[in-house]
Design a protein around this nucleic acid. Structure first.
Lengths: 152, 152
DNA sequence: TTGCGTGCAAAGGTTTTGCATGGCA
DNA sequence: TGCCATGCAAAACCTTTGCACGCAA
Protein backbone atom coordinates (compact mmCIF):
# COMPACT_ATOMS: atom_id res chain seq x y z
CA UNK A 1 0.00 0.00 0.00
CA UNK A 2 1.34 3.39 -0.97
CA UNK A 3 1.78 6.36 1.27
CA UNK A 4 2.31 4.34 4.35
CA UNK A 5 5.69 5.58 5.40
CA UNK A 6 6.36 9.01 6.77
CA UNK A 7 9.70 9.90 5.26
CA UNK A 8 11.90 12.97 5.46
CA UNK A 9 11.30 13.70 1.76
CA UNK A 10 7.54 13.68 2.20
CA UNK A 11 7.72 16.00 5.17
CA UNK A 12 9.91 18.41 3.20
CA UNK A 13 7.51 18.37 0.28
CA UNK A 14 4.55 19.07 2.50
CA UNK A 15 6.33 21.96 4.16
CA UNK A 16 7.18 23.32 0.72
CA UNK A 17 3.52 23.04 -0.32
CA UNK A 18 2.35 24.99 2.70
CA UNK A 19 4.76 27.82 2.05
CA UNK A 20 3.75 28.05 -1.58
CA UNK A 21 0.19 28.83 -0.61
CA UNK A 22 -1.93 29.58 -3.66
CA UNK A 23 0.97 29.73 -6.04
CA UNK A 24 1.48 27.01 -8.58
CA UNK A 25 4.88 25.47 -9.23
CA UNK A 26 6.61 23.01 -11.50
CA UNK A 27 8.64 19.99 -10.50
CA UNK A 28 11.74 22.05 -11.22
CA UNK A 29 10.60 24.80 -8.87
CA UNK A 30 10.16 22.28 -6.08
CA UNK A 31 13.46 20.52 -6.67
CA UNK A 32 15.49 23.72 -6.85
CA UNK A 33 13.86 25.34 -3.86
CA UNK A 34 14.34 22.28 -1.71
CA UNK A 35 17.94 21.94 -2.84
CA UNK A 36 18.52 25.62 -2.09
CA UNK A 37 17.47 24.89 1.45
CA UNK A 38 20.15 22.26 1.56
CA UNK A 39 17.70 19.40 1.41
CA UNK A 40 18.48 16.43 -0.76
CA UNK A 41 15.61 15.18 -2.82
CA UNK A 42 15.54 13.20 -6.02
CA UNK A 43 13.61 14.39 -9.01
CA UNK A 44 11.69 11.13 -9.44
CA UNK A 45 10.65 11.27 -5.82
CA UNK A 46 9.11 14.68 -6.42
CA UNK A 47 7.30 13.40 -9.51
CA UNK A 48 6.06 10.31 -7.73
CA UNK A 49 4.90 11.99 -4.57
CA UNK A 50 3.12 14.81 -6.41
CA UNK A 51 1.36 12.17 -8.48
CA UNK A 52 0.21 10.52 -5.27
CA UNK A 53 -0.94 13.78 -3.77
CA UNK A 54 -2.83 14.63 -6.93
CA UNK A 55 -4.58 11.28 -6.81
CA UNK A 56 -5.79 11.92 -3.28
CA UNK A 57 -6.82 15.47 -4.13
CA UNK A 58 -4.22 17.26 -2.06
CA UNK A 59 -2.73 18.98 -5.08
CA UNK A 60 -4.23 20.12 -8.35
CA UNK A 61 -2.34 19.28 -11.52
CA UNK A 62 -2.57 21.02 -14.85
CA UNK A 63 -0.63 22.07 -17.90
CA UNK A 64 0.71 25.55 -18.40
CA UNK A 65 0.50 27.13 -21.82
CA UNK A 66 4.15 26.23 -22.33
CA UNK A 67 3.37 22.58 -21.81
CA UNK A 68 5.03 22.19 -18.44
CA UNK A 69 3.04 20.44 -15.76
CA UNK A 70 2.11 22.74 -12.90
CA UNK A 71 1.01 21.71 -9.46
CA UNK A 72 -0.77 23.54 -6.73
CA UNK A 73 -1.55 22.84 -3.13
CA UNK A 74 -5.21 22.38 -2.23
CA UNK A 75 -5.60 23.18 1.43
CA UNK A 76 -9.05 21.78 1.84
CA UNK A 77 -10.17 19.51 -0.94
CA UNK A 78 -13.73 19.42 0.35
CA UNK A 79 -13.90 23.21 0.36
CA UNK A 80 -13.08 23.23 -3.33
CA UNK A 81 -16.11 21.21 -4.30
CA UNK A 82 -18.78 23.06 -6.14
CA UNK A 83 -16.98 26.24 -6.82
CA UNK A 84 -14.66 27.59 -9.46
CA UNK A 85 -11.10 28.76 -9.76
CA UNK A 86 -9.54 31.58 -11.61
CA UNK A 87 -5.87 31.78 -12.43
CA UNK A 88 -3.80 34.86 -13.05
CA UNK A 89 -1.85 34.35 -16.24
CA UNK A 90 0.91 36.63 -14.97
CA UNK A 91 1.67 35.70 -11.38
CA UNK A 92 0.23 32.23 -11.57
CA UNK A 93 -1.83 32.46 -8.42
CA UNK A 94 -5.04 30.52 -8.33
CA UNK A 95 -8.06 32.03 -6.61
CA UNK A 96 -11.26 30.51 -5.44
CA UNK A 97 -14.45 31.93 -6.87
CA UNK A 98 -17.20 31.28 -4.39
CA UNK A 99 -19.55 33.44 -6.29
CA UNK A 100 -23.26 32.88 -6.72
CA UNK A 101 -22.95 34.19 -10.24
CA UNK A 102 -21.00 31.05 -11.12
CA UNK A 103 -23.90 28.99 -9.86
CA UNK A 104 -26.20 30.99 -12.07
CA UNK A 105 -23.89 30.42 -15.01
CA UNK A 106 -23.77 26.67 -14.37
CA UNK A 107 -27.52 26.54 -14.19
CA UNK A 108 -27.95 28.63 -17.30
CA UNK A 109 -25.49 26.60 -19.39
CA UNK A 110 -27.30 23.46 -18.40
CA UNK A 111 -30.82 24.67 -18.93
CA UNK A 112 -30.37 26.74 -22.05
CA UNK A 113 -27.29 25.24 -23.67
CA UNK A 114 -27.53 21.66 -22.46
CA UNK A 115 -23.96 21.89 -21.24
CA UNK A 116 -22.94 20.43 -17.89
CA UNK A 117 -20.16 22.69 -16.67
CA UNK A 118 -17.54 20.95 -14.54
CA UNK A 119 -16.18 23.19 -11.77
CA UNK A 120 -13.22 20.92 -11.12
CA UNK A 121 -11.93 20.99 -14.67
CA UNK A 122 -12.67 24.59 -15.53
CA UNK A 123 -10.16 27.32 -14.80
CA UNK A 124 -11.00 30.94 -15.54
CA UNK A 125 -7.93 32.69 -16.87
CA UNK A 126 -7.15 36.38 -16.63
CA UNK A 127 -5.21 38.99 -14.71
CA UNK A 128 -5.59 39.47 -10.98
CA UNK A 129 -5.90 42.87 -9.37
CA UNK A 130 -2.31 43.01 -8.18
CA UNK A 131 -0.88 42.25 -11.60
CA UNK A 132 -3.21 44.62 -13.42
CA UNK A 133 -1.98 47.44 -11.20
CA UNK A 134 1.55 46.69 -12.30
CA UNK A 135 2.22 45.61 -8.75
CA UNK A 136 4.25 42.72 -7.51
CA UNK A 137 2.70 39.34 -7.64
CA UNK A 138 0.61 38.92 -4.53
CA UNK A 139 1.84 36.39 -2.01
CA UNK A 140 -1.69 35.43 -1.26
CA UNK A 141 -4.32 36.99 -3.40
CA UNK A 142 -7.25 36.48 -1.11
CA UNK A 143 -8.13 40.15 -1.62
CA UNK A 144 -9.43 39.26 -5.00
CA UNK A 145 -12.21 37.26 -3.44
CA UNK A 146 -13.33 39.85 -0.97
CA UNK A 147 -15.86 42.60 -1.26
CA UNK A 148 -18.15 40.78 -3.59
CA UNK A 149 -21.83 41.24 -2.91
CA UNK A 150 -22.65 38.10 -4.85
CA UNK A 151 -20.41 35.91 -2.82
CA UNK A 152 -21.61 33.67 -0.09
CA UNK B 1 8.13 36.27 -45.79
CA UNK B 2 6.38 33.18 -44.54
CA UNK B 3 3.23 31.67 -45.88
CA UNK B 4 3.86 32.82 -49.40
CA UNK B 5 3.85 29.54 -51.21
CA UNK B 6 0.79 27.43 -51.78
CA UNK B 7 2.10 23.91 -51.42
CA UNK B 8 0.49 20.50 -51.60
CA UNK B 9 1.15 19.94 -47.89
CA UNK B 10 -0.59 23.13 -46.89
CA UNK B 11 -3.62 22.32 -49.02
CA UNK B 12 -3.84 18.88 -47.43
CA UNK B 13 -3.61 20.33 -43.95
CA UNK B 14 -6.34 22.85 -44.67
CA UNK B 15 -8.60 20.16 -46.04
CA UNK B 16 -7.95 18.10 -42.92
CA UNK B 17 -8.82 21.10 -40.75
CA UNK B 18 -12.13 21.61 -42.52
CA UNK B 19 -13.15 18.00 -42.08
CA UNK B 20 -12.29 18.05 -38.40
CA UNK B 21 -14.79 20.81 -37.82
CA UNK B 22 -15.10 21.65 -34.14
CA UNK B 23 -13.02 18.72 -33.00
CA UNK B 24 -9.58 19.21 -31.59
CA UNK B 25 -6.63 17.07 -32.64
CA UNK B 26 -2.98 16.48 -31.89
CA UNK B 27 -0.08 16.56 -34.30
CA UNK B 28 -0.14 12.79 -34.26
CA UNK B 29 -3.81 12.72 -35.23
CA UNK B 30 -3.09 14.93 -38.21
CA UNK B 31 -0.03 13.00 -39.35
CA UNK B 32 -1.69 9.61 -39.07
CA UNK B 33 -4.92 10.65 -40.73
CA UNK B 34 -3.10 12.25 -43.63
CA UNK B 35 -0.85 9.23 -44.00
CA UNK B 36 -3.87 6.95 -43.93
CA UNK B 37 -5.18 8.86 -46.91
CA UNK B 38 -1.97 8.03 -48.67
CA UNK B 39 -0.62 11.55 -48.39
CA UNK B 40 2.99 12.07 -47.53
CA UNK B 41 3.65 14.74 -44.98
CA UNK B 42 6.53 15.23 -42.60
CA UNK B 43 5.95 15.66 -38.91
CA UNK B 44 7.97 18.87 -38.71
CA UNK B 45 5.93 20.34 -41.51
CA UNK B 46 2.78 19.71 -39.51
CA UNK B 47 4.30 21.31 -36.42
CA UNK B 48 5.55 24.29 -38.36
CA UNK B 49 2.41 24.96 -40.32
CA UNK B 50 0.16 24.62 -37.28
CA UNK B 51 2.40 27.08 -35.49
CA UNK B 52 1.94 29.50 -38.34
CA UNK B 53 -1.81 29.02 -38.42
CA UNK B 54 -1.98 29.55 -34.68
CA UNK B 55 -0.03 32.79 -35.01
CA UNK B 56 -2.51 34.11 -37.54
CA UNK B 57 -5.46 32.94 -35.48
CA UNK B 58 -6.67 30.24 -37.83
CA UNK B 59 -6.20 27.54 -35.23
CA UNK B 60 -6.42 27.56 -31.47
CA UNK B 61 -3.65 25.83 -29.56
CA UNK B 62 -3.77 24.50 -26.05
CA UNK B 63 -2.52 21.75 -23.76
CA UNK B 64 -4.56 18.72 -22.89
CA UNK B 65 -4.46 17.35 -19.36
CA UNK B 66 -2.12 14.63 -20.61
CA UNK B 67 0.37 17.25 -21.70
CA UNK B 68 -0.09 16.81 -25.42
CA UNK B 69 -0.61 19.95 -27.45
CA UNK B 70 -4.04 20.07 -29.05
CA UNK B 71 -5.06 22.17 -32.00
CA UNK B 72 -8.41 23.21 -33.30
CA UNK B 73 -9.65 24.91 -36.40
CA UNK B 74 -11.14 28.37 -35.97
CA UNK B 75 -13.41 29.05 -38.88
CA UNK B 76 -13.75 32.74 -38.34
CA UNK B 77 -11.13 34.26 -36.09
CA UNK B 78 -12.90 37.62 -35.95
CA UNK B 79 -16.10 35.94 -34.83
CA UNK B 80 -14.27 34.48 -31.84
CA UNK B 81 -13.28 37.80 -30.39
CA UNK B 82 -15.00 38.80 -27.22
CA UNK B 83 -16.78 35.60 -26.48
CA UNK B 84 -16.05 32.39 -24.67
CA UNK B 85 -15.62 28.76 -25.50
CA UNK B 86 -16.67 25.63 -23.79
CA UNK B 87 -15.18 22.24 -24.46
CA UNK B 88 -16.75 18.87 -23.97
CA UNK B 89 -14.35 16.70 -22.02
CA UNK B 90 -15.76 13.58 -23.64
CA UNK B 91 -16.08 14.24 -27.36
CA UNK B 92 -13.57 17.05 -27.48
CA UNK B 93 -15.74 19.46 -29.41
CA UNK B 94 -15.37 23.13 -28.69
CA UNK B 95 -18.44 25.35 -28.70
CA UNK B 96 -18.83 29.06 -28.86
CA UNK B 97 -20.66 30.72 -26.02
CA UNK B 98 -22.11 33.94 -27.31
CA UNK B 99 -24.03 34.45 -24.18
CA UNK B 100 -24.74 37.75 -22.48
CA UNK B 101 -24.37 36.02 -19.15
CA UNK B 102 -20.64 35.68 -19.89
CA UNK B 103 -20.46 39.41 -20.39
CA UNK B 104 -22.14 39.87 -17.04
CA UNK B 105 -19.65 37.50 -15.46
CA UNK B 106 -16.69 39.34 -16.97
CA UNK B 107 -18.04 42.62 -15.69
CA UNK B 108 -18.74 41.22 -12.27
CA UNK B 109 -15.33 39.61 -11.85
CA UNK B 110 -13.71 42.89 -12.79
CA UNK B 111 -15.84 45.15 -10.63
CA UNK B 112 -16.19 43.03 -7.55
CA UNK B 113 -13.16 40.76 -7.66
CA UNK B 114 -10.70 42.98 -9.53
CA UNK B 115 -10.06 40.13 -11.94
CA UNK B 116 -9.76 40.78 -15.67
CA UNK B 117 -11.12 37.64 -17.28
CA UNK B 118 -9.53 36.79 -20.63
CA UNK B 119 -12.00 35.22 -23.09
CA UNK B 120 -9.25 33.99 -25.37
CA UNK B 121 -7.46 32.01 -22.69
CA UNK B 122 -10.42 30.70 -20.78
CA UNK B 123 -12.07 27.46 -21.74
CA UNK B 124 -15.14 26.24 -19.89
CA UNK B 125 -14.96 22.49 -19.50
CA UNK B 126 -17.87 20.12 -19.10
CA UNK B 127 -20.12 17.67 -20.93
CA UNK B 128 -22.12 18.65 -23.99
CA UNK B 129 -25.74 17.67 -24.47
CA UNK B 130 -24.98 14.86 -26.90
CA UNK B 131 -22.50 13.21 -24.59
CA UNK B 132 -24.65 13.60 -21.50
CA UNK B 133 -27.43 11.74 -23.25
CA UNK B 134 -25.08 8.86 -23.78
CA UNK B 135 -25.29 9.65 -27.46
CA UNK B 136 -22.57 9.53 -30.02
CA UNK B 137 -20.18 12.42 -30.10
CA UNK B 138 -21.80 15.12 -32.16
CA UNK B 139 -20.17 15.86 -35.47
CA UNK B 140 -21.01 19.49 -35.05
CA UNK B 141 -22.53 20.47 -31.78
CA UNK B 142 -24.07 23.74 -32.84
CA UNK B 143 -27.29 22.63 -31.13
CA UNK B 144 -25.69 23.35 -27.83
CA UNK B 145 -25.62 27.03 -28.63
CA UNK B 146 -29.20 27.34 -29.75
CA UNK B 147 -32.34 28.11 -27.84
CA UNK B 148 -30.75 30.43 -25.33
CA UNK B 149 -32.74 33.48 -24.40
CA UNK B 150 -29.62 35.21 -23.13
CA UNK B 151 -27.76 34.81 -26.35
CA UNK B 152 -27.39 37.56 -28.88
C1' DT C 1 16.35 31.65 -60.77
C1' DT C 2 15.19 32.86 -56.09
C1' DG C 3 14.23 31.79 -51.71
C1' DC C 4 10.42 29.76 -49.06
C1' DG C 5 8.91 25.07 -47.74
C1' DT C 6 9.87 20.36 -46.69
C1' DG C 7 11.82 16.20 -44.66
C1' DC C 8 15.22 13.85 -42.21
C1' DA C 9 17.87 13.36 -38.36
C1' DA C 10 19.67 15.18 -34.31
C1' DA C 11 19.13 17.85 -30.29
C1' DG C 12 16.45 19.55 -26.29
C1' DG C 13 13.41 19.24 -22.63
C1' DT C 14 10.09 16.85 -19.65
C1' DT C 15 8.24 12.78 -17.54
C1' DT C 16 8.25 7.80 -16.72
C1' DT C 17 10.35 3.45 -15.54
C1' DG C 18 13.68 -0.38 -13.95
C1' DC C 19 16.44 -1.72 -10.49
C1' DA C 20 19.40 -1.80 -6.56
C1' DT C 21 19.72 0.42 -2.19
C1' DG C 22 17.95 2.87 1.86
C1' DG C 23 15.04 3.49 5.72
C1' DC C 24 10.41 3.42 8.22
C1' DA C 25 7.52 0.64 11.05
C1' DT D 1 12.85 -8.09 9.29
C1' DG D 2 9.59 -6.91 5.65
C1' DC D 3 8.33 -3.91 2.45
C1' DC D 4 7.56 0.67 0.88
C1' DA D 5 10.29 4.72 -0.65
C1' DT D 6 14.17 6.70 -2.84
C1' DG D 7 17.73 7.87 -6.28
C1' DC D 8 20.20 7.11 -10.25
C1' DA D 9 20.37 6.28 -14.92
C1' DA D 10 18.17 4.90 -18.93
C1' DA D 11 14.22 5.03 -21.66
C1' DA D 12 10.20 7.04 -23.57
C1' DC D 13 7.86 11.04 -25.36
C1' DC D 14 6.94 15.28 -27.42
C1' DT D 15 8.65 19.30 -29.72
C1' DT D 16 12.16 22.20 -31.79
C1' DT D 17 16.07 23.03 -34.74
C1' DG D 18 19.88 22.63 -38.41
C1' DC D 19 20.70 21.68 -42.88
C1' DA D 20 20.45 20.17 -47.60
C1' DC D 21 17.23 19.50 -51.12
C1' DG D 22 12.74 20.35 -53.48
C1' DC D 23 9.52 23.14 -55.52
C1' DA D 24 6.26 27.30 -56.17
C1' DA D 25 6.32 31.70 -58.20
Amino acid sequence: MRGEYNTRQKREMLSFLKERGLKHFSVDDAVFELQDRGEKIGRSTVYRYLEQLAAQGAVRKYQSVQGVTQYQHVEDAAACDGHFHMMCSKCGNLFHVDCRLMGALTKHLMEDHGFALDPRETILVGLCGQCRNGGEAAEHGADTASGCHHCL
